[in-house]
Design a protein around this nucleic acid. Structure first.
Lengths: 338, 338
DNA sequence: CTGAAAGCGCTTACAG
DNA sequence: CTGAAAGCGCTTACAG
């Protein structure tokens, strides 16, 4: 194959030479400062015509180097395979683009080591700021970056000890509502299935669960607490479900702190002979389209992925432009109670 | 908020000044040309120590401007919401990173206008090459870019008239195998559900279907051909399923050319009273984990997302480095026949 | 109304 | 063994 990858693109310099004016003039006109610098309308037109005829576009690199801003934001998501994150990613990309920004996207795969490497990499690439779904046990480096005042937005998860801008969902409130609806549906022994319980979000969701139970005079007893942390492994889940059914045979409600647990637990329950289409009521944080097929009456708090992504961009751009903004953003979930 | 976004990072120049050597020397040492340029070991060590102590990293922008390569690739996927594409995206990002490249990611949302805009944008940003899942009706601009010899890799879809590098799955062969397995399972009236039939991939899948039927002495009759193109709307699908069941009440096999149709059609069939768990056999191109819950015996040809993404990067990088590479890459699907 | 010049932070031929 | 100088393609204070 021939190397023809290089563009035969036109430069500021060549425009200036062709037109017999200085690069300054061309730069001013094409960056919209023609009026301001009172370049004659005729000249302006001439330059603009020439530029558009030759499809001129400034070299972003040179521009960025000079202006010290790349109009690029770095995005680090925990996972791209999870539709939740890819949906957020989509929203970030779209909103960024609407504002003339591009997104350099990476995945940390939930590794805090990778997270550090990626932040460094993105900074060396001179992105203007970073949006990050932080890993559970961030390294000191993250603190350092925040303390430096680097433009960083925490997305979906908030690390309370870190004084930084964040955009998260109202995990506790939504959980409270969901579990409340299970109670109203008549459930009395409501199991909670959760994972990575040490993660801030999961704790908030647990708190909502506990408070809703307390509020109904019910107890969040330990037998009902099913933490299937670690590598969400099918065998582990079956084991946990088995134990639950032995300890609480009359369990009549299920609250999932995350959509990823719904299907595996559902399968395990079915395998163990639990009447999944019986009288139990169900609720989960975030759902996927297929869930409504299996459990049409499940109550859902849909995480506002679209808004989480968009808001993160908005906040970051405001910060970059020295505009006022809220550093604490808690967005409501879309509740669909049954 | 204070603007502290700027890094107080150290530059080549400041290292050189601090150490009393020229920028040339520093640059050589830090870019690994110390030996080659026979800089004294003592000096090399001194420079390296200083650099790592101050955590120096060259400014990527300046480097790129000079070297005329950004070590960045542009990725345009049709959609990020679809797990198929986000899984490909993940693979592209990972493989690129392994090779010191970053990915600027965008979505065309299947609009050929957006596609053109995005390609232009990415080129102005000086990406080294672009990986693209092309829209169905690409604009002339795409041809032009290809003709210029720009480093472009078509991912997942191939536009036969375009002489360019592509990485796709063996759509026809896999479809042939899938439908063959339906026949072996005893199905005789096998409906095909497809969408965007004008799209190359879909035609290939149809061809596989037709040939498998012919091969079994069966007819690909028009009543069995269910094209639910357009905005895959639930009402439309229900209507199409209704017609199918009226025209071919004894339909006993279903072949889906894409995973996105499985759930909606399944729901529609159920609503219309078709015994979805009866004797019919099922097959689809690409599946999602939940499918096995609903249709455990469905035969599946899983598209090799991981490999599609990785191969695209490999091919693009080879092209960038003037290495030999295959411009036509057809990857096998992972067949799971029942 | 317009231009010469410096500078963004690197790399690398060229010269000693 | 090492450095002065030019250049990547822009933008913008400064000077007329």
């Amino acid at each position: 194959m021939v190397n023809a990858g290089k563009r035969s693109s036109i430069s500021l310099k060549s425009i200036a030479e062709s037109l017999g004016v200085s690069r300054t003039t061309v730069s001013w006109v094409l960056s919209g400062q023609g009026e301001e610098k009172s370049i004659s309308p005729a000249m302006q037109q001439k330059i603009k015509d020439f530029a558009s005829k030759h499809n001129y576009q400034p070299n972003f690199l040179a521009r960025s180097l000079n202006l010290r801003r790349t109009n690029t934001i770095g995005l680090i998501v925990s996972s791209l395979a999870d539709p939740f994150y890819s949906s957020i990613a989509k929203s970030v990309v779209t909103r960024a683009e609407e504002n003339g920004y591009s997104v350099m996207m990476t995945t940390s795969e939930s590794s805090s080591e990778r997270e550090v490497k990626l932040i460094e990499m993105l900074r060396h690439r001179q992105v203007d700021g970073i949006i990050l779904t932080p890993s559970q046990q961030p390294k000191d480096y993250l603190w350092q970056v925040v303390n430096e005042g680097y433009n960083l937005v925490m997305l979906d998860r908030n690390i309370p000890e870190l004084e930084t801008t964040y955009v998260v969902a109202d995990n506790k409130e939504s959980s409270y509502e969901l579990v409340g609806s299970l109670v109203r549906n008549g459930s009395r022994k409501i199991a909670i299935f959760t994972t990575a319980h040490d993660l801030g979000n999961m704790q908030f969701r647990y708190d909502g669960y506990r408070e809703a139970l307390e509020n109904a005079g019910l107890e969040a007893s330990p037998e009902l607490f099913c933490d299937v942390s670690g590598s969400i492994d099918k065998a582990d889940i079956v084991k946990r479900v088995d134990r639950l059914l032995k300890e609480v045979p009359d369990v009549d409600g299920f609250f999932f702190t995350t959509h990823v647990l719904v299907l595996p637990v559902y399968i395990a329950l079915k395998e163990k002979g639990y009447p999944t289409n019986g009288g139990a009521s169900w609720a989960c944080i975030h759902s996927q389209p297929e869930f409504s097929l299996l459990l049409p009456n499940m109550s859902v708090a849909q995480l506002p992925t679209e808004e989480l992504g968009a808001r993160s961009v908005d906040v970051l751009l405001k910060s970059l432009n020295h505009e006022e903004f809220d550093s604490r953003n808690v967005l409501g979930c879309d509740l669909r109670l049954h």
